[in-house]
Design a protein around this nucleic acid. Structure first.
Length: 418
DNA sequence: TGACGTCAAGATCCG
DNA sequence: CGGATCTTGACGTCA
């Protein structure tokens, strides 16, 4: 039903997350970062609302060192107004958010210090969602942890330590199969025994399967049983293998044909699907537009974002898409994104890249001063002569985009896709 | 002891 | 000096 993305955005203004080192983490520095990060979170929530994205994972780093004793700020009171404002936007728009402590939060460690840290960390995550005023449908996702040579004992320790968690954390906690230690069968057994909802992760299940014969649909049905009414809709994680990286690495973008097939197969309309993918919000918008009825205007607006990136890669596909968008009465989302994917998969070509850069330059040629005109000519020549890279050319154009505040270009993915 | 994963910050280099 | 490019950090497990 809802499709969403994790933590960061591409091409969204004022959504940057900041961080700092432990040794620089003064109260002043921490406050500055928290203030920035909450402003960014609000921008992201606004963006999600505008783009009909109803599922989002909030970064664990939203509060720097949120569970480290170095951070003694009571950020939930210092930023109470801001947190309420953001929480209200989330609730009023029907958005569902989550948080996901990473691979270093380990509840079942034999080392009691590690367990203590994990509990602190879960408390921090729970407190953040509480401070937004959100109910228990807004989940905290956790992996089971390590094996330590004795899986049975490791699982018992997970169960023991789970029971020690505060109710405010337990009510949100859901568990997920991972790519090396605990497969979906293990996690379903634990979830069933302790009444913890289970998140099925399709790529982890491919990398660390129980049994190749059992289908994804079957596992999703079995996981469904662990979700009770006040947990909200069943959630799953979806990602695709990056073809050039090692097994388990997330793809740059979600291949839309494969996703749509998956969505039909597993009856995705009954699920909340969290995408784990490098291009973040871009894949979320793509998957949302390809699984529902769309107005032509949404596709046209997407074309506005992608067009110069496509022109840079493949002028022929650029023309093909222009032609495609003239069919105002058909459902264009799928063929549109398939064409975008083909274009972005195309090998770089200097001539095409220069052609696109000149199109973009068109936004400045009337306002640019003499030095800027000369610099653009020079950087183009240096690019042709292999002295400068395409990234250098584009970062020069980005500088001009910001200087002359060209709104259309600020929202263009030309500068963010490679 | 280093790889793993992730992203910005910090450090260094270059013209 | 500003910008580009590289290295580091912060976490715990496992080989």
């Amino acid at each position: 039903m809802s499709i969403g993305y994790a933590c960061l955005t591409i091409g969204v203004e004022n959504s940057q997350q900041k961080s700092c080192n432990l040794k620089n983490a003064t109260p002043e520095k921490l406050q500055e970062i928290i203030s920035n990060n909450l402003n960014s979170l609000e921008s992201i929530v606004d963006y999600n609302i505008e783009n009909n994205i109803k599922l989002f994972r909030i970064s664990s780093d939203i509060i720097p060192f949120g569970s480290n004793p170095i951070n003694q700020l009571s950020w939930w009171t210092l930023y109470e107004n801001k947190l309420n404002k953001i929480g209200t936007k989330i609730k009023n728009s029907g958005m569902r958010v989550s948080m996901h402590p990473g691979q270093y939060t380990v509840l079942n460690s034999p080392d009691s210090k590690v367990v203590e840290n994990a509990i602190c960390d879960l408390n921090y995550h729970g407190k953040f969602l509480d401070s937004l005023g959100l109910n228990r449908e807004h989940k905290l996702i956790l992996h089971i942890g390590g094996i330590y040579q004795e899986k049975e004992n490791a699982i018992s320790r997970f169960e023991e330590n789970y029971r020690k968690l505060e109710e405010s954390v337990r009510k949100r906690l859901v568990i997920e199969n991972d790519d090396r230690s605990y497969n979906i069968r293990d996690v379903l057994d634990i979830g069933t025994k302790l009444s913890i909802p289970v998140v099925f992760d399709n790529l982890h299940n491919k990398v660390n399967p129980v049994n190749e014969e059992i289908s994804e649909e079957t596992w999703i049905c079995l996981a469904a049983i662990t979700w009770k009414v006040n947990d909200g809709r069943q959630k799953i994680h979806y990602s695709q293998q990056n073809p050039i990286k090692k097994r388990g690495s997330h793809a740059e973008t979600i291949g839309i044909r494969e996703f749509v097939n998956f969505y039909k197969r597993v009856k995705g309309e009954n699920l909340d699907i969290m995408l784990e993918v490098k291009d973040k919000n871009l894949s979320a918008v793509k998957c949302i537009l390809c699984t529902g009825r769309q107005k032509i205007s949404s596709i046209e607006s997407e074309w506005g974002h992608y067009k110069y990136a496509v022109l840079e890669k493949a002028p022929d596909i650029y023309q093909e898409i222009r032609k495609l968008l003239k069919n105002k009465n058909e459902d264009l989302a799928l063929p549109f994104y398939e064409a975008i994917e083909r274009a972005m998969d195309t090998e770089n070509n200097k001539g095409h890249a220069i052609n696109a850069a000149q199109h973009v330059w068109g936004y400045f040629k009337d306002v640019a001063n003499e030095k800027e005109k000369n610099d653009f000519v020079k950087i183009q020549e240096n690019y042709k002569a292999d002295i400068k890279s395409l990234e250098n050319v584009k970062s020069y154009l980005w500088k001009l985009t910001l200087k002359y505040q060209r709104e259309y270009l600020i929202n263009s993915l030309y500068f963010f896709l490679t």
